[in-house]
Structures are given as structure tokens and as C-alpha cells.
């Protein structure tokens, strides 16, 4: 009788949204909600700056698409826009395949300790800040004291100022990105490779398949899903994530091939105080990213086995 009564009152209490337990739970998530509200939601209307201008006397007025027209007529904007897509192309051509190749090759090594050592060393640079990575390469490639130029001169060549040649920059930058990230990015593929059923290899061997055919017919299909998911996921942020490395590596000589939208926004907005123009470019960039995100989401539902969505 007594216990039945408590159950009833407990159930009645449950129906109220703001019972003691729930209030406690809501309080527990309050700090993240407040921080997100302040630092993500309050700046959101700031995007309206893209449609505003200031007069010389500091008076704000609505300018419609004037900022967009101005930006689209600025060669520097198109330069940054183009460079951004050049880096995207280099990403998919070299940086995406590199860890897959790395994992496939490392998977062929049967000596455990060797495999582990290679992995340990190659993963470390991922955790080191870009400032240090850039510092290491600047030292290595320096025209006066760099070891690379020392070797070139030793063999009778001309010293090259690598980091001031616009044509070389996308290649050097891609090399550095692989140098820093290939070990870490390969971990997920190595995990997927470890999950491939060994019986499939045995069956392939019985069918007379050599190492190469095993890789083609068993290993690659085994990690196909992982590759597809990672590529699709990467679509939504192709235009971001390069601010830090570019900002550290950029100099006046290579600006023509190194400036990207993010660094251009920084220059225009923070360094030169042209808030409305920088916000305009920011809005343009995030619109493209949003379209790509929806595209990736649509694609993800189609190509993944379980039809999962990103959003």
C-alpha cells in the first residue's frame, strides 16, 4: 500500500517537466549553453555587417549588395578565392591518398616492432603546432644556412630561396601537410585494415592471387567504406582549416599563391579594420561551405552502406 502510493506520486512528479531531477539536469548543461549562446549565437546577427556600410562620420547605413559588388570587383578577392581552390585540388590529389597508401604499405610489413616504430615517429608531428613545423622547414630551406641548399650547392647547383617562389609554394605546402599529418591520418585506415577478415585472404590465396591481387580484391574493398565516408565528410570543410599554416608560412614574395580567403579576411577585417568587407567575404565563404555540407549530407545518405546522414 505504502509502496504503491510512492510509485503514484513518483509518476505524477515525473509528468512535470521542472521536477527536482530535471531542474538539476538542466542546471548541469547550463554552462555550455551559456558559452555557446555568447560566443556562437550573439555574433550571428553580426553577419548583417555584410549588407551595411559606414559613412566617414561613423554612421551605419544599409547598403544592400554594394559590399558584394565591391568584393567581386576586387582582384585580390579572386586571387584568394582561386588559391583556396588550388589548395583544395592539391588536398584531394595528394593529401587524401597519402595516408591510404601509407597504411596499405605499412600493413604489408610483418615485423611488429618495425611497424610500431614507424607509426610512433610518423604520428608525432601531428601534435606539434604549425609554428614549429614552419620553423623547422624554414630552417631547412633557408637560402643562406639551410641544409637543402647546402646540398644543392655542394653538387654545383644554384641556391634556391624555396619559400619565396610563388610557383613552388603549393607543392612545398602540400609536402609539409603530408609530412605533418600522414602518420596520424593513416591510423583510421590501419584500424580498418585490421578489421578485414583474414579468411578472405586465405580464400584469395587458394584462388591463386598474389600480393597485389589480394590488395586489389580483398584489402581495398575492405576499407572502401572508410575511404568514402572520410572523403564525403571532408567536403563540408574544404575551405577552412588552413588559416594557421598559411598565416605562419606566408610572406610578401609568395602572397600571390599563398593568400587564401581566411587570411584575406583576417588582413582586411582585423589588421585593416574593414569590418563590413571582411564579413562580406566571410558570408560568401560560409554560404559555399553550407552548400557543400548539404551536398555531402545528400551524398553520404546515398553512398554509405547504412545510408547515414551527417546532419
Amino acid at each position: 500500500m505504502d509502496s504503491a502510493a510512492t510509485t503514484v506520486s513518483y509518476k505524477r512528479n515525473e509528468k512535470k517537466i521542472f521536477n527536482k531531477t530535471n531542474v538539476m539536469l538542466y542546471l548541469m548543461i547550463l554552462p555550455p549553453l551559456i558559452l555557446y549562446y555568447i560566443f556562437h549565437y550573439i555574433p550571428m546577427p553580426g553577419i548583417m555587417l555584410a549588407f551595411q556600410r559606414y559613412t566617414i562620420s561613423g554612421f551605419k547605413y544599409w547598403s544592400g549588395f554594394e559590399n558584394f559588388t565591391y568584393i567581386f570587383n576586387t582582384p585580390f578577392f579572386w586571387r584568394a578565392f582561386r588559391n583556396n581552390w588550388v589548395f583544395v585540388a592539391f588536398s584531394y590529389a595528394f593529401i587524401t591518398p597519402a595516408p591510404i597508401l601509407f597504411a596499405l604499405m605499412l600493413n604489408e610489413i610483418r615485423v611488429r616492432w618495425y611497424k610500431k616504430t614507424v607509426q610512433t615517429i610518423s604520428t608525432l608531428p601531428n601534435f606539434v603546432t604549425w609554428v614549429v613545423i614552419a620553423g623547422i622547414f624554414m630552417q631547412l630551406l633557408s637560402p643562406t644556412r639551410g641544409y637543402v641548399n647546402y646540398i644543392i650547392e655542394f653538387f654545383g647547383g644554384q641556391s634556391i630561396y624555396f619559400l619565396s617562389k610563388p610557383a613552388l609554394f603549393p607543392w612545398l605546402f602540400t609536402f609539409m601537410r603530408i609530412w605533418k599529418g600522414v602518420g596520424y591520418s593513416s591510423i583510421i585506415y590501419l584500424a580498418a585494415l585490421a578489421g578485414v577478415d583474414p579468411q578472405l585472404y586465405e580464400a584469395a590465396v587458394i584462388d591463386g592471387a598474389g600480393r597485389l591481387r589480394q590488395t586489389w580484391h580483398v584489402t581495398l574493398p575492405g576499407i572502401r567504406n572508410t575511404i568514402v565516408v572520410l572523403i564525403v565528410l571532408s567536403f563540408s570543410h574544404v575551405l577552412s582549416g588552413l588559416f594557421e599554416p598559411i598565416f605562419v608560412l606566408k610572406n610578401d614574395f609568395i602572397e600571390s599563391s599563398a593568400e587564401i580567403l581566411d587570411t584575406y579576411i583576417f588582413n582586411l577585417g582585423i589588421t585593416r579594420g574593414k569590418y563590413y568587407l571582411a564579413t562580406t567575404i566571410g558570408l560568401f565563404k560560409s554560404t559555399i561551405s553550407m552548400v557543400l555540407l548539404f551536398f555531402a549530407n545528400w551524398l553520404s545518405k546515398r553512398v554509405t552502406e547504412d545510408g547515414r546522414s551527417i546532419l
Partner: peptide
Amino acid sequence: YFLVIIPMLFGGGIVPTYLL
């Protein structure tokens, strides 16, 4: 929605955050 999905879709960007 508040913590993950909306911030993934919309954001003020560098300048409005800086101004805040």
C-alpha cells in the same frame, strides 16, 4: 540542435566574433 547542428550551419565568422 543548439550545440551541434545550428553552430555547424551558421556562424558569425571571424569579424563579428572579434567585435563581440
